[in-house]
Design a protein around this nucleic acid. Structure first.
Lengths: 251, 251
DNA sequence: CGTGGGCTTGACGCCATTCAATCTCCGTGG
DNA sequence: CCACGGAGATTGAATGGCGTCAAGCCCACG
């Protein structure tokens, strides 16, 4: 997975130079100067192993972080030790854009797979928002889409049964990866425990649900990676309505 | 409930002239000019009966709305007709602060009880955000707290059993009403169906849960209103940690 | 006085949890 | 080279939380 890293910054041709820019371009019509500034901001990054915290609950972090590669998540640990995953962050997503305003993190952010994480100082972000109004607007847009995703997750967990929940989550990730122009075929490499913590079900049940979806040909499994042979069928099965992602109609 | 309306705008003494200002004051140190402007903005309002939509899914609304009295909610209707309530809006909450950026509503907002709803034109909001930076910052803060509340609801629905869920929701509402300086004793007048749609459980089960909480003395019922005799006990029962509301320590 | 909305209660069944055991990989160290 | 151990996946049986279906109650309102 890491072999891909070296060239994601120079993705000529489309004008989409990195995944952050690609994502933000849905929120505002970015121009060359915007892309150039975003590329500069992504210069500094670090590689992090799986299962390590990017930010911990209670922190008042000095840097703003963005995911360049891998998957991380927002999560809380409950008093009895269970973990609740409230958001999955894929390449192009910001972790803590606005934490300066709230002051302290009320949850943690940790990696689920090995990740490359960009870190940007607060002052750079503040200057960015002042000097690049199109980027600022796109950041706003991204924040609001994140909120819309949260609401849909609430619907998903509250109203659907676990097989539909799982299918719905997979549809969303499929579209989110497509939206950032992910170069490879969608193949999700999360463990069943990570998926279970995301949906609020047990590992055992997550396994049964995955087995059932596989049985019905709605998903495929190879090398512990989930792939989707027919996204339209999976969307129909999970009653997936992509409006909440606020992507262009044909995606 | 409506007798109270006439005097909520002139709440001298504390300097908190309306619930919107009271809520926003947690996000930034508002000054007299800010309060004055907020009061002006709340001049125009309309009374709405229970069960009416303030904004509907798909709308691109012309006005921004704020709740002055009553309770409304964000909700979606699923294909099979079930309703999922994703947010409860109490006095002082804005409905659709940032909808201009997303373009169209991906959910609806409707009243649960009779409400007084302020409406402010988009241009007034835009001017407000430019000319009153402290209010703008406080609006940002409020948006981020709303997001934090959504995340906690996700934890609540995913990880807790329904009696704890119900108790947790009641604790949150208790603290949110306290935070805006609600003049009366906390007494929640939602129907069991509305609570059920919020927690993602059936009406029948909601009734059993409420009965059990009442049996244990954790809540009280009079005139179809839920009151909390001992908030500390209810918070302990539901493992309630108020950090996510980002209120001052002693609330 | 009839009607409808909201609340209450019981019986039954299913979805998901719990507990427990087994299996497959893989990386590590003897 | 093989033994060992841990992480993750898989499977089975029993339990229970919650949904479903159905009936009846209370009370405000036309």
């Amino acid at each position: 997975m890491f072999e891909r890293h070296s060239d994601f910054l120079r993705d000529g041709g489309t004008g989409m130079r990195n995944f952050v820019a690609r994502k933000l371009s849905y929120g505002a019509a970015l121009q060359d100067s915007d892309h150039a500034r975003l590329d500069e901001l992504m210069r500094h990054w670090k590689a992090m192993p799986a299962k390590s915290d990017i930010i911990s609950q209670g922190d008042d972090p000095e840097y703003v972080h963005a995911i360049l590669d891998g998957i991380s998540c927002r999560y809380k640990i409950l008093p009895d030790g269970r973990r609740s995953i409230m958001d999955l962050l894929i390449p192009g997503d910001f972790c803590d854009m606005n934490i300066a305003i709230l002051g302290r993190m009320d949850h943690s952010i940790g990696t689920l797979t090995p990740c490359r994480v960009a870190f940007i100082s607060r002052s750079e972000i503040e200057d960015l928002l002042l000097d690049f109004p199109r980027i600022a607007r796109a950041m706003w847009w991204a924040t609001l889409v994140d909120e819309a995703i949260l609401r849909e997750w609430l619907v998903n967990m509250g109203q659907r049964r676990s097989d539909r929940q799982m299918a719905h989550l997979l549809c969303e990730l499929y579209l989110r990866y497509a939206a950032i122009g992910w170069p490879d075929k969608f193949a999700l490499a999360l463990t069943q425990e990570q998926l279970a913590d995301t949906l609020g079900i047990t590992v055992v049940h997550a396994q049964r649900v995955i087995a059932a979806l596989r049985q019905d040909g709605l998903i495929e499994l190879r090398d512990r990676q989930i792939t989707i042979p027919d996204i339209a069928r999976l969307m129909e099965f999970s009653e997936f309505n992509p409006d909440y992602l606020h992507l262009p109609p044909e995606s």
